[in-house]
Amino acid sequence: MLHYDFMQRAFCAGGIIALIASALGVYLLLRRQALMADMLSHVSLAGVAAGAYLRINPSITGFIVAIIGAIAVEYVRKAYKTYSELSVAIIMVGGLSVSIILMTMNKTINKSFSSYLFGSVVAVNQLELTMMLAAALIGALFFFLLRKPLYIISFDEESARTSGIPVQWISVGFSIITGMIVAAAMPIVGVLLVSSLIILPAALSVRIAPSFTSAILVSMGIGLTGTFTGLTASYELSTPPGGTIAFILLLFLVSGLCVRKIILLASKSTSKKMRPEIAVKESRISKNGLSSNLQKIRQR
C-alpha cells in the first residue's frame, strides 16, 4: 500500500493533521467551543467557493476565509456571552449561505466541490501538504509556548483575566490557529466531517486521561491511530477515506466509553460487595443496641 506515492502523501498529511487537530480538540472541548470546528469548516467552504468564482486557488481562499471567520466568531461570542453557541449558528449560516450562492453562480465548479465536502486525502496536492505542514507547525508552536496560560483560560476565563493573563490576545490567537487547522484538515475528511477529526479523539481522552497533559497526548494518540487505521481500511475496503476515518474515530469513542463504563461498574460492584458486610454489622449493632435499650426501658 505504501509503495504508492499518493498513499505516502495521504499518510503524511493525515498524520500531521491528526496530531495537531486532536490537540486542538481538547482545548475546544474544554472551552465549550466544540462546534467551532464545524462552523469554521462551513465558513471555509464559502472561501473555497469564492476562490473558484474569482479564479484564485480555492485552497488558499478557503484558508484565509476560515481565519477571518475564526476572528469574527470571537467578537460575535462576546455579543452573545450567555448563549455563546448562537455565535456559531450565526456565522455558520453566513458561511453556508454565501457558499451556496457562489456555487449556484458558478455551476462549472459544482463537481469538484464534492472533494471539499467529503474530503479526498489521497488526492492531496503539494500546496495543500505545505499548507498543512505550516498550519501544524504554527499550531504546535502556539500550543507549546502558551500551554500554561491556555490551561488556566480553559478552566475559567474570568479568573485568568483577573490574574493578569492577556486572555483577549490569546483567545484571538487561538481562534486564528483553529481556523488554520480546520482549513488544513478539510482535504482529509471534508467540510462535513472535519469536526470528527478534531472533537472525537478529544471527547474520549478527556474522559480517560488522568491529567491535562496526558489528555492532550492521549487525544493525539487516538487521532493518529484512528486516521492511520481509517486510511488503511479505506484502501483495503475501497471506501471513501474521509468517512472511513470519521467512522473509525467514532468506533474508538464508543468502544472506549463502553470499556470505561464496564470498568466503573466492575469497581462499583466490588465496593458494593464490601459495603453490605459493614452495613449488616452496623445494623446488627444498632439493632442489638436498640433492643437492649428497649428492654431496659421496658424493665423500668
Binding site: V26, K148, P149, Y151, I152, F155, A160, S205, F212, T213
Partner: peptide, 14 residues
C-alpha cells in the same frame, strides 16, 4: 481532565 497538583500549581503560571 486535571490532577489536583497540576491544577493548584497552575496558579504559579499566571
Amino acid at each position: 481532565p486535571s490532577q489536583v497538583t497540576e491544577f493548584v500549581r497552575s496558579g504559579l503560571h499566571t
